[in-house]
């Protein structure tokens, strides 16, 4: 049914080979508890699939419901500019209960973001990028978070390692 309208491109945050047989795209919100629950599950999936999987994260902050989500996404994008997107992604999901500005600033400092870069994230300088992810997600049929796409098709099953691995392994056999 719903298909990814924005193909995975050079601007995306990816883990694993870009030419892997299977691409798993997550639209996520750093404050969303369901994304928080999916986080360790997706790690298991990545470890199990190894180089056969390219994992992509795109921003989908539901800012009215999750007041810290947009700012957290700004910090992740800020970290991305110095090559530390995934470290920040992991820190945010591992500390979902602590996403106040002072917490974000501490994670950023730990990862080596400069004062200027931190100010930039606080100002919202990455809003356009985040908005582009969000709008592309809406157009692709993202209806909540986390929303997963496997090789471009929306996956409507549960975001658990067991459910995902079953589907991903069947893809690999094609």
């Amino acid at each position: 049914m719903s298909e990814l309208k924005l193909p995975v491109g050079p601007g995306d945050h990816v883990q694993g080979p870009r030419d892997a047989a299977i691409t798993l795209v997550e639209y996520g919100d750093f404050e969303c508890p369901f994304c928080g629950e999916a986080y360790p599950e997706l790690k298991i999936v990545q470890r199990a699939m190894g180089n056969r999987l390219c994992f992509v994260f795109r921003n989908f902050p539901l800012s009215n419901m999750h007041p810290h989500a947009e700012r957290a996404a700004e910090f992740a994008e800020g970290a991305a500019t110095i090559g530390h997107f995934w470290e920040m992604h992991d820190l945010l999901y591992e500390n979902q209960e602590a996403l106040e500005q002072r917490n974000l600033t501490r994670y950023a400092t730990e990862l080596g973001l400069s004062h200027e870069l931190i100010q930039s994230a606080i100002r919202g300088d990455f809003a356009e990028r985040i908005c582009r992810d969000f709008t592309g997600g809406v157009r692709s049929g993202v209806n909540g978070t986390p929303c997963l796409f496997i090789n471009g098709r929306r996956f409507d099953g549960p975001a658990t390692a067991a459910a995902l691995l079953e589907v991903l392994r069947s893809f690999g056999e094609d």
Binding site: M65, F134, G144
Partner: peptide, 13 residues
Amino acid sequence: SDQVSLYNELLSE
């Protein structure tokens, strides 16, 4: 709740 929250984010759109 998920559905209306999504639309709420899209009002400007």
